[in-house]
């Protein structure tokens, strides 16, 4: 379902030289598979997620997702593809502060161009235990509740792949467990593949497949 081959990513350094961040000859993820990618800070975990999401374009190589080679697409087409096929969970939730919990989900559905936004948003928020908080603004929610909204938002557009960037690192132990379980359960329920990047081995241990970034990233 997701296949990376000969993927490299270089940045222009401040001194004018190039800094290579990623060099992944091969990496694959099956449909509905749940994988934890573990690595230390600064190893390029987030960059890899941005490449898979089509937010960044690789220096070279190929990213194939759901039968589409992402780096062959224009930026607008990548945006559309991302809206329709990918869900994104952020480390610090990144809920839009001017919109209620339900509206945060509806926006994702809107970008995907799908109908039935309010009903699906309500349904998902009920699933994450926030039926009573539909019209709450992010500032009115606890950190754990915010991340539950973030998880529901990532699934609102019915994605084939959910990318989660350190999704529990801003949560306390109780909320971490709840969020993690919800993420795993919901992705399984919706048959969405889940790729979680984390530096926390305890979090990684919850996943059936754990990949060390340093094993696939040959710098």
């Amino acid at each position: 379902m997701l296949h990376l081959s000969n993927l490299t990513m270089q940045y222009q350094g401040r001194d004018g030289g190039t800094v290579q961040v990623l060099n992944i000859p091969e990496f694959s993820l099956a449909a509905g598979e749940q994988v934890a990618l573990i690595g230390e800070s600064g190893q390029g975990k987030t960059t890899l997620l941005h490449l898979i999401a089509g937010i960044l374009t690789p220096t070279s190589g190929k990213i194939e997702l759901a039968g589409v080679i992402l780096n062959n697409l224009s930026e607008a087409a990548r945006d559309r593809f991302r809206a329709e096929k990918i869900g994104y969970i952020f480390q610090s939730f990144h809920l839009l502060p001017g919109f209620t919990a339900q509206e945060n989900l509806e926006l994702g559905i809107m970008f995907a161009g799908r109908g039935g936004g309010p009903a699906r948003a309500k349904g998902l928020l009920q699933q994450v235990g926030l039926a009573e908080r539909l019209h709450f603004y992010p500032r009115e929610l606890s950190a754990g509740q915010q991340q539950r909204v973030g998880i529901a938002r990532a699934l609102a557009n019915q994605p084939v792949l959910v990318l989660a960037d350190e999704p529990t690192s801003a949560l306390d132990a109780g909320n971490r467990e709840t969020a993690l379980q919800l993420m795993i359960d919901l992705c399984r329920e919706q048959n969405a593949a889940l790729l979680v990047v984390t530096h926390d081995r305890a979090v990684a241990a919850r996943f059936p497949r754990v990949v060390e970034l340093k094993d696939i990233n040959q710098l």
Binding site: A83, F90, H94, L96, L107, R153
Partner: peptide, 15 residues
């Protein structure tokens, strides 16, 4: 940040 989040959720530049 909000604009970046919206873009990550699939909002197009022109939107």
């Amino acid at each position: 940040r909000e604009i970046a989040v919206m873009r990550a959720l699939g909002a197009r530049r022109r939107t």
